[in-house]
Nucleic acid binder design. Structure first.
Lengths: 232, 232
DNA sequence: TTCATGCTTCGATGGTAGCCGAAGCATTGT
DNA sequence: ACAATGCTTCGGCTACCATCGAAGCATGAA
């Protein structure tokens, strides 16, 4: 028998539909009350209470008392990241919960995944880069081409040496939560997101803990000019 | 009700201890037969078969027929990544599987993790490197210092260019199974392990499938001289 | 062919965990 | 003080699913 982290325990926590619903509801980074989460999961408050204690014991959520309400939020971005990963795997195998209602359209359109851009726009960006041969993608491997380097230097003032990192690959395909497509991660993904912020094209939502990325008017235009697919 | 990928389904797959054991056993990237996985998980072949079909249906593992054996492997790196993430969450909250009794002391002392050294000695080695500023570690990021490069060249004949790899970081902190501490992974971790083998300091145990690493008498001395903490 | 090995399917069993109703605290408001 | 709201605890019910024995296929060996 093995020792090591009890991966089954934390996975089992996410493995229950009711709890998964709650966690998904929390993935936009905002805190919700126990009752809201109960309604979100379609269960009674008693049951929700039980689930929430388990999630808390497992370190996936953190409570915050406020008056007679109890707000719960995801513990940190790592949790959100793992949930995104799980969602990616589920989406890839075609196991979608059928309804496609843009529950939180902003989150679906553009959000932070670790430190890079995810959501519709993130996927669109990688699509654009790939179709113009600025990057080459083979399965999970992405490589920056020479044209790609020139493109980055010219339009975003990003030079290759800014991207080298002992531990982290320059490019990486990261499976998107909402779409079942890849978006761009790695030091390049992070650098581009950072540049978008510096250029005031986009910024993380002000609400603490929110993972939504808001694009400015001009930012959206510039982004579309660089990575647009003509449909925007 | 929500839209989006059915995260609960895939999480539930990992959430069963037996299945989690199998997945963990597959995390070194090698394919294992159904029986091996059954033994690994401590269940009968029938039960394992049932689990494996579910894992396959969920897209987490892929089978490969070979003679009358059926080899299973993780579908791809995305799966391994999510599993690592889960392990990270579990480890962080202190939920380790407390497997009583050092079942295999040799395994606990020195073993192969992927392709690098893990266990007591692996942790000790990284500790030593860090305390002598041969590497700098910030959270999970490890960086080789200039002194570190000189040290490697002098004592282990490892040059920086041997370590560069398009997709893999040179250094990486890898969470240790038995200890709750980090040991050194990445191309450097692999290169050092390889060098230990070449120098006949240590070798993987002869038993097929075993992950134990046996140090020779002189190997242990040399290792202690380089990375010892005085207590050995 | 006959036997052995590896794996799967079938059927039955038992333990576990999700679920809700009712009751119990806690906080806030009147 | 009393009531209302929000959440938790308790007890019992139910459904699901992991598990294993036995039998059934498939592949390879003799």
């Amino acid at each position: 028998m093995k020792s090591g982290p009890d991966i089954a325990m934390v996975a089992a926590l996410v493995g229950d539909p009711a709890r998964a619903n709650m966690l998904t509801a929390l993935m936009n980074g905002r805190a919700l009350t126990a009752s809201e989460l109960a309604q979100e999961a379609g269960i009674t408050p008693q049951t929700a209470s039980s689930h929430l204690s388990k999630l808390e014991a497992g370190g996936l959520v953190e409570p915050e008392k406020q008056g007679r309400h109890r707000y719960y939020r995801l513990t940190d971005d790592d949790v959100a990241g793992v949930l995104e990963g799980l969602a990616g795997l589920a989406a890839r195998t075609g196991h979608m919960r059928v309804r496609t209602g843009p529950k939180d359209p902003a989150l679906r359109r553009a959000r932070i995944c670790y430190d890079h851009l995810a959501g519709d726009l993130g996927v669109q960006m990688l699509d654009s880069l790939r179709s113009r041969h600025l990057v080459k993608q083979k399965k999970q491997d992405i490589e920056l081409t020479a044209e790609g380097e020139r493109f980055l230097a010219k339009h975003l003032q990003i030079s290759p040496e800014m991207l080298s990192h002992p531990r982290r690959p320059v490019c990486k395909a990261c499976l998107d939560w909402s779409e079942r497509r890849h978006h761009l991660a790695g030091t390049l993904g992070a650098a581009m997101m950072q540049r978008f912020a510096e250029l005031k094209w986009a910024a993380r939502d002000a609400t603490p803990g929110s993972r939504v990325v808001n694009f400015t008017r001009t930012g959206e235009k510039q982004f579309a000019a660089l990575f647009g697919n003509g449909k925007d």
